[in-house]
């Protein structure tokens, strides 16, 4: 997999997410030890790190599912920790969250899964308009034919795509991907990587991609940061991050990546 080409649409003057001094501990275990992070408009930022290093915790704090113990998390100009529930909900409509296990609603068809946020947040939308939008996002992820299927009838890759489609339906400004290629075969991983880049181009989103899959990181990341010991130790392009003598970085690369 080749490295991603330089993206000309990134606006380095506009930060959509800005995190300063973020700390988070679970009981005695301190996961994040003062994290600083900026995401620029139009950028795909990959957060790399081993399992259990707090990568998913980070995006859950960004989306308000968890709260940090210290520090500030500013998303689209609003401090997530200070928002009232109603304002947090309004902010969440601008954030798409693709879960590691897709988190599709088991008891609903694909159509109902996609209609679920629309019914609640686009109440003025007519039924035909809603149907057209559902078909549009399904077409964008290449799964128009799955509209009447139940999640249990879909493969892992298809579930991932539908999960992404469900987040896209509200046209978010920011996409958060939690381990988008985990548990998928290499061919499907490439398809998902291409989809992430396609979403960035087509929907003009800024994204944080949490992964420990270096192939994915190289294919989709405009910038890569590496989370080690609760802090971002390395930052830059994929090549810059791994141009290091740090044993932890090298062992991660050697174990994970096949060039």
């Amino acid at each position: 997999m080749e490295a991603k080409e330089i993206n000309p649409n990134i606006d380095r003057n506009e930060k959509v997410i800005s995190i300063r001094g973020l700390k988070k501990a679970f009981d005695d275990f301190e996961v994040l030890k003062g994290v600083d992070l900026d995401l620029y408009k139009g950028e795909n930022l990959v957060v790399l790190g081993r399992s259990g290093t707090g990568k998913s915790v980070l995006i859950k704090i960004i989306s308000g599912l968890l709260y940090g113990d210290e520090g500030s998390v500013n998303v689209l100009g609003q401090d997530v920790g200070e928002l009232k529930p109603r304002d947090l909900d309004a902010l969440r409509l601008k954030i798409g969250f693709s879960f590691q296990n897709s988190a599709l609603y088991d008891s609903m068809t694909v159509r109902e899964n996609l209609a679920f946020p629309l019914v609640r947040h686009a109440k003025n939308m007519g039924e035909q308009e809603r149907e057209d939008l559902i078909l549009y996002v399904l077409e964008a992820v290449g799964l128009s034919q799955a509209i009447n299927q139940m999640p249990s009838e879909l493969s892992g890759g298809q579930r991932k795509r539908i999960g992404i489609a469900r987040t896209l339906i509200l046209k978010p400004d920011i996409m958060l991907y939690d381990e988008p290629t985990a548990g998928l075969d290499p061919i499907t991983c490439i398809e998902i990587n291409n989809l992430i880049n396609e979403v960035q181009r087509r929907f003009n989103t800024s994204s944080i991609i949490i992964t420990h899959d270096l192939t994915c990181a190289r294919a989709v990341g405009d910038r890569v940061v590496m989370l080690l010991d609760g802090q971002f130790q390395r930052e830059g392009t994929f090549e810059e991050v791994f141009d290091s003598n740090d044993e932890r970085v090298q062992s991660f690369y050697n174990y994970n990546f096949i060039d």
């Binding site: 599912l65 988190a103 088991d106 679920f116 469900r166 987040t167």
Partner: peptide, 16 residues
Amino acid sequence: SMRVTEQIDAMEVSAT
């Protein structure tokens, strides 16, 4: 089952 498969979190992040 919805909790452990993050379906409840998915509802929450979609502002439901």
